[in-house]
Design a protein around this nucleic acid. Structure first.
Lengths: 351, 351
DNA sequence: TTGTACGCGTTATCAT
DNA sequence: ATGATAACGCGTACAA
């Protein structure tokens, strides 16, 4: 056995180290607490303290640190829907990025609209511990949570805030540009009867829908009646939406979808309906989630720069909060998505 | 504006409440700290304290609570791979379940095998805060982490531990039964040339592979040479594995796959190769992740009772740690998976 | 029934 | 260069 006396013994405190190293507890703190150039310490003492600390297996107690006003190295992440692969990917990115900065991530879950109106922050996350809070997605459904956040002192950064008012520093993608890239691709292939399926998370992707409407009007003068579908933001939603679309007397030859998750549902429905993709129907998604490269057929989509967005957010969140409130409080960073052409798009069928 | 004086003021402490309510801080503590019948409190005083606390927007400081030895209401979850939809689903379930018990979840990420060997627990999670640690998946790759956990005092519960030695209380599914259910289904349809694709997370799903080998020997006397494939546990892995399988002189008519994620990759490869599913090839997955019902074609698979497993784990994790070490320390709970027949399986093609 | 006093493990401010 | 000592917010013996 390599672990001998250390087994199952409560973690040593600074006092233990101090006793063992025959110094005062404050000296131990000075040596250990990282403040390297704060006060000069005798190299010999420093070494001795460090050694005993290592031997005893000392680990700082972040609770005590936090009590003193120091940071807890915890970042709170509030998500509405984990099961959404897009957010799952974003969380992974967030965790990885946070850890590379020495932070852990505490997950908060804003439950999808229970009957009870007000969901205070404390219900969702014990924020007082977290050095910062990252909001993933549109949180307008939770006004109480937002109010709590507003009134609190923790730095907040909002990611993919949809149509939420920009009250926090925000990092987002240029949804409009992404949608236009997808639609341009379809038009270049020769499509004109292009429908749009919008994943309806209350008002999250309104921007994408607007971009579609705007594009269609620009390009064709009008949006074909009933070509802008909406559906719940999940696989079944996309399935149902495409069925409605193909049921029409004038079914589209192409569908742009506001999220890949819904697009996967669309692909499934097309298959069930015997509508071959891309032979009879082209499909463009948005997000480029992991499965998108491996659907049947592989999905043409718009890549969401998750890593960049999250990296930026973490950078912002862990930045020492010593800045003036007026400085970057309205900072809005926008990243550009990029079209990824795969196998779900082709020229429309010849009539 | 509804928020007036409370805006941006650091959260009030018990002392603030005490001052405002003209009582001592300990009285406030007694009233607020939940211990209802601990010591009798004058109803009038109690009411006054409660009211001022509400007015001032008091919220307990869990750091201070934790320092005092109380619980932090934090559960640490260590996952190896977030991007795996199966674990994403498990984490969601864990978060939801934990919150319903008043706990938040701190995510730890065990990075997929960097060159550096030893990954101590502290790197992955500041455990000292968490009231319990939940291990998701096989952690044998991280012996140092396991050693830290073993030496520590926090209760640990292992979920889907694969072939790890059962050193912690464990909740798992009956993988063998699940695999057999899938294989029985294929055999009932008339298949004999049944291959197996195993997602290779070092040794996570060895059990499933063993179950396949055992079944085939039982049923057909032998396992066709080279029919037990292994591949990285992701979409591309399944893709590549099926290509190897179909490249053989005697390609299988059915493939059982050890995870749905890999199975989705298999479906994609089949499509790319022009092998129709289920016409020329039947595919059975394992896990029943969210997409499985919406792949093309919808995947026949074995449902993993994630919710039940996670619920059981949380129940165990938050159970007051007052039990004797010998009692339930070797507890192993096993849940039964269940076959879900969809559209990716059919009788083998007639020759 | 309520108030006083102490300690949890740290960091920060004093003195030495 | 180092050692006392005072907080941080809370729970809890103990005293009143």
């Amino acid at each position: 056995m390599t672990d001998d006396q250390s087994a199952k013994r409560p973690v040593p405190t600074m006092r233990d180290i101090a006793r063992a190293a025959a110094v005062s507890q404050s000296t131990v703190s000075r040596v250990l607490s990282g403040a390297p150039t704060a006060v000069p310490i005798a190299p010999e003492t420093r070494e001795r303290v460090l050694r005993t600390a290592r031997e005893l297996g000392y680990r700082p107690n972040p609770l005590a640190r936090g009590l003193r006003g120091a940071s807890t190295n915890l970042i709170g992440a509030v998500v509405r829907d984990f099961s959404d692969p897009f957010f799952a990917g974003a969380i992974e990115a967030l965790v990885v990025e946070s850890m590379s900065h020495g932070y852990n991530v505490v997950l908060g879950h804003a439950p999808p609209r229970t009957g009870a109106e007000a969901i205070p922050l404390t219900t969702v996350l014990e924020t007082r511990h977290t050095d910062a809070v990252v909001l993933l997605g549109d949180m307008q459904e939770y006004p109480e949570l937002l109010a709590d956040l507003r009134a609190s002192l923790v730095p907040v950064v909002a990611l993919w805030p949809g149509t939420s008012p920009r009250e926090f520093p925000t990092v987002d993608a240029d949804d409009r540009a992404g949608i236009r890239a997808g639609l341009n691709h379809l038009v270049a292939l020769g499509h004109e009867r292009i429908a749009f399926v919008n994943a309806e998370l209350p008002n999250e992707y309104r921007v994408r829908e607007q971009a579609y409407l705007e594009f269609m009007r620009e390009r064709f003068g009008a949006v074909p009646e009933g070509y802008a579908e909406r559906c719940p933001s999940n696989l079944a939603g996309g399935d149902a939406a495409l069925r409605r679309l193909m049921d029409r007397p004038d079914p589209p030859t192409a569908v742009a979808v506001s999220t890949d998750v819904v697009a996967v549902g669309v692909l499934h429905a097309a298959h069930s309906l015997g509508v071959t993709v891309p032979g009879r129907l082209s499909v463009v998604g948005f997000d480029d989630i992991l499965i998108s490269a491996h659907t049947v057929p592989a999905l043409t989509t718009v890549r969401m720069p998750i890593a960049e967005i999250v990296a930026h957010a973490v950078e912002f969140a862990v930045r020492p909060a010593r800045r003036e409130p007026s400085e970057a409080d309205l900072s809005i960073e926008v990243f550009e998505p990029e079209l990824v052409v795969r196998d779900s798009t082709a020229p429309p069928p010849v009539i």
